[in-house]
Computed example of a mutant assay.
Amino acid sequence: MSETMTAGKLIDLHDIGTDAEPKPKLLIKTEPMNVMRLVLPAGKAIPEHKAAKDITVQCVAGKVDFTAMGETMTMTPGKMLFLPPGELHSLTAIEDSIMLVTKAN
Results as ranks from 00 to 15, higher is better:
residue 2 S to D: 10
residue 2 S to Q: 08
residue 2 S to P: 01
residue 3 E to W: 08
residue 5 M to W: 08
residue 6 T to E: 14
residue 6 T to Y: 00
residue 7 A to C: 08
residue 7 A to W: 02
residue 8 G to M: 06
residue 9 K to L: 06
residue 9 K to A: 09
residue 11 I to T: 12
residue 12 D to E: 13
residue 12 D to I: 02
residue 13 L to R: 02
residue 14 H to D: 08
residue 14 H to Q: 11
residue 15 D to W: 08
residue 15 D to M: 08
residue 15 D to Q: 15
residue 16 I to S: 02
residue 16 I to G: 03
residue 17 G to V: 07
residue 19 D to N: 14
residue 20 A to S: 15
residue 22 P to A: 10
residue 22 P to T: 07
residue 22 P to R: 07
residue 24 P to T: 10
residue 24 P to C: 12
residue 25 K to V: 08
residue 27 L to D: 00
residue 28 I to N: 05
residue 28 I to H: 07
residue 28 I to S: 09
residue 29 K to R: 12
residue 29 K to W: 00
residue 30 T to P: 01
residue 30 T to M: 13
residue 31 E to K: 12
residue 32 P to R: 12
residue 33 M to Y: 04
residue 37 R to I: 08
residue 39 V to Q: 03
residue 39 V to N: 02
residue 40 L to A: 08
residue 41 P to L: 09
residue 42 A to M: 10
residue 42 A to V: 14
residue 43 G to Y: 06
residue 44 K to R: 14
residue 44 K to A: 12
residue 45 A to T: 14
residue 45 A to V: 13
residue 45 A to I: 10
residue 46 I to G: 00
residue 46 I to W: 00
residue 47 P to D: 04
residue 47 P to I: 04
residue 49 H to S: 09
residue 49 H to Y: 05
residue 50 K to T: 12
residue 50 K to A: 13
residue 51 A to V: 06
residue 52 A to R: 11
residue 54 D to V: 04
residue 54 D to Y: 02
residue 55 I to Q: 01
residue 55 I to Y: 00
residue 56 T to P: 01
residue 56 T to W: 00
residue 58 Q to Y: 04
residue 60 V to L: 06
residue 62 G to S: 09
residue 63 K to L: 03
residue 66 F to M: 06
residue 67 T to L: 09
residue 68 A to M: 09
residue 70 G to S: 11
residue 71 E to N: 15
residue 71 E to M: 15
residue 72 T to G: 11
residue 73 M to F: 07
residue 75 M to I: 11
residue 77 P to Q: 05
residue 77 P to V: 13
residue 78 G to W: 07
residue 78 G to Q: 09
residue 80 M to H: 11
residue 81 L to A: 04
residue 82 F to P: 05
residue 82 F to L: 15
residue 82 F to R: 10
residue 83 L to D: 06
residue 84 P to N: 10
residue 84 P to C: 03
residue 85 P to Q: 09
residue 86 G to V: 02
residue 86 G to Y: 07
residue 86 G to C: 05
residue 87 E to N: 12
residue 87 E to I: 15
residue 87 E to R: 09
residue 89 H to L: 09
residue 91 L to V: 10
residue 93 A to E: 00
residue 94 I to E: 03
residue 95 E to H: 14
residue 95 E to V: 11
residue 96 D to P: 04
residue 98 I to A: 01
residue 98 I to T: 06
residue 99 M to A: 05
residue 100 L to N: 01
residue 100 L to S: 01
residue 101 V to H: 00
residue 103 K to I: 12
residue 104 A to W: 02
residue 104 A to S: 15
